[in-house]
Simulated assay, not measured.
Amino acid sequence: MSTSMSNSTAVPTVSSASTPIVLTIAGSDSGGGAGIQADIKAISATGGYACSVITAITAQNTLGVSAIFPIPLKHVEKQLDAVFTDLNIIAVKVGMLADAEIIKIVAAKIKQYQPAFLVIDPVMVATSGDLLLQASAINTLKSELLPLADIITPNLPEGAALIGSEVPNNEGSMEAMISGLRQLGAKTVLLKGGHLEKDENSNDLLIFPDNVHHLTAKRINTRNTHGTGCTLSSAIASYLAQGYDLLQAVQLAKQYISQAIAHADELDIGQGHGPVNHFFNGHADVS
């Protein structure tokens, strides 16, 4: 099934008087374009309330990452307990987890507090192609955390790393990954096709247990795409927290990130790959 992003008219299937609180568990980006900073911007821009647990502090700008300082495990745990015991967290987005021990703590706390929705952006592969997680940590991610997820959002290198395949170079080889990705245990998988840069459109596969939705949006020619994965996954979590069903949440998030990329060149940030424009419209209405 193919779905265009230009005509989404989704409305929430669940209404709630409570504030849609979304927790992001990820690393901090000092340049403000990705990580915790992008997550908070995306959640806020799409109508949610963002809280955070920081797993690592990066020294980072639009030109790259120069240092990473993992937060001590005990403090990650204390942050998780602090927010979960006080705030009515409806959805959780998980991004950068530095090592296997942090993955185990996050998985244990998700099981303990049982938020309604869990969105995992498996940040595993740098833009350079280098793996950001050791093999043991990838195995822990696959065994402990991914099976808890309502949706995981790998890009093509991350999806390939998760199932041990070659990185796809066309839509046919993307579709060949479907069976392997289903076996990871998450309820759904959004396989993002943004790395197929020769394609006119940016095509993603939303993989359910018994069907696949093809989501397409016009590819936008800009170098300012820093933080797109963080932004998309956070927007999905935000829309889930507001009562949209999973397909609607993904459709709206895809529409939101497409607009944020389309307006990215209106910003003048740094000398390298700048961020998307999270507040392109000034408020949460992306219709």
Results as ranks from 00 to 15, higher is better:
V94Y: 00
I105C: 05
L97T: 02
T9S: 15
G180Q: 10
L118V: 06
V286R: 14
S8N: 12
P168T: 11
H75T: 05
Q37P: 08
A262Q: 11
Q255I: 03
L247T: 14
T19K: 10
I138G: 06
P122M: 06
A137H: 13
E158V: 11
A107R: 04
Q259D: 14
S173L: 10
L190F: 04
G272C: 12
T127I: 09
D121A: 10
Q37Y: 01
Y113W: 07
T188P: 07
P12Y: 13
M124N: 10
L131S: 15
A237I: 12
T153W: 01
L23G: 03
V94L: 01
L184C: 03
A137F: 12
I68N: 14
A38V: 14
N201E: 12
D39V: 00
G172T: 11
T24G: 02
G164N: 01
I68V: 15
A10L: 08
I68D: 11
L181Q: 02
A237H: 03
S238D: 03
N139R: 13
I21H: 08
G159W: 03
P70M: 03
S287I: 13
F117H: 15
K93E: 00
N224C: 10
F279P: 01
Q114A: 15
V53I: 13
T140W: 01
E266M: 09
G270S: 12
G47R: 04
Q271W: 09
H278E: 02
L145Y: 00
V53Y: 06
K187P: 08
S238C: 05
G64A: 08
M5R: 14
S16H: 07
K192C: 05
L131P: 11
T222H: 06
E266P: 05
A56Y: 01
T85M: 07
V11M: 14
T13R: 11
V276W: 05
H214P: 07
S16L: 06
A59G: 08
F208A: 12
I54P: 00
Q251W: 14
V76P: 02
A50W: 07
G48A: 05
G48R: 05
E171V: 08
A126G: 09
N170P: 13
Q79L: 04
E166Q: 15
I90N: 09
N88C: 09
N61R: 13
A241H: 07
A45D: 04
G270R: 07
T188V: 07
V123H: 09
G47T: 05
A107Q: 09
G164E: 12
A100N: 08
P115M: 02
A253V: 11
S28A: 01
C51G: 08
L23E: 03
H75L: 02
M96N: 00
Q251R: 13
D99W: 01
A45Q: 11
